[in-house]
């Protein structure tokens, strides 16, 4: 029986301190490292170029001022959410896959932009329904959105590649899950009437109305 090792984790990025440089907030960790583990900080400094690059990258990320160049270089998985939202503007010619949640654990997968690849949507819905053995339909209001009843976003890129020869680079996975239904989304701005005029009056106003 081996004894349990006690491992120290960095309070900022929660990684073991030797991996701080790969964490999301190395500039913060640096201060902490300098105080408690100067030897680790030094071993990081001794390693040339590569770590410097990552450092710059992480700093750029936190500042959120990345250029297009770095966007191309960086792995998609490394891009934080805020940058993804920026990217959304650049998704022309891309297929967007997103999910929304219905009830507790049921998902709907939404695909947008299929028609750009000259895909017959009706045929596609049938094929998806067949492949994933679940309901699939074209969204009523738009002519370019397909809904699949079920969480299939993992296997969808493979199917798209096989059936329609759409390369994975042209597929944009939106990882955020929208919780509300689409219809309710539109209604979000229209607050129900009984709630509309319920602004709490300020103290002055209340006093004025009392008098």
């Amino acid at each position: 029986m081996t004894e349990a090792l006690k491992v120290e984790y960095c309070p900022h990025c929660r990684l073991p301190p030797e991996y701080c440089q790969y964490g999301p907030c190395f500039s913060k960790c640096k201060v902490w490292l300098a105080e408690i583990h100067p030897e680790i900080l030094e071993s990081i400094k001794n390693i040339p170029k590569q770590t410097k690059k990552t450092e710059e990258k992480t700093e750029k990320k936190t500042k959120n001022t990345s250029n297009q160049e770095t966007k191309q270089v960086e792995n998609k998985k490394l891009i934080p959410n805020e940058e993804k939202e920026k990217e959304k503007g650049n998704t022309d010619g891309k297929i967007i896959i997103s999910r929304s949640r219905r009830g507790g654990k049921k998902f709907i997968t939404i695909i947008e932009g299929l028609s750009q690849f000259e895909v017959d949507l009706k045929k596609a819905t049938k094929l998806f329904a067949n492949k994933f053995s679940c309901g699939c339909n074209i969204e009523k209001d738009s002519d370019d959105t397909v809904c699949i009843q079920g969480d299939v976003h993992f296997s969808l890129p493979d199917v798209l590649l096989k059936e329609f020869k759409i390369p994975k680079t042209q597929i944009h996975l939106n990882e955020q899950i929208t919780k509300a239904k689409k219809k309710s989304k539109k209604n979000k701005n229209n607050v129900p009437k009984h709630k509309q005029n319920r602004k709490k009056p300020t103290r002055k106003e209340r006093l004025a109305s009392n008098n």
Binding site: T2, A4, L5, K6, V7, P16, Y19, Y22, I47, Q50, T54, N75, K77, L78
Partner: peptide, 22 residues
């Protein structure tokens, strides 16, 4: 991390760390 002996280790070089963390 607490019981490092439970799995056999393979070691990658410095350059690969970034990719694996990605």
């Amino acid at each position: 991390h607490s019981y490092p002996d439970i799995l056999p280790p393979i070691q990658v070089d410095e350059g690969a760390i970034r990719h694996i963390i990605g």
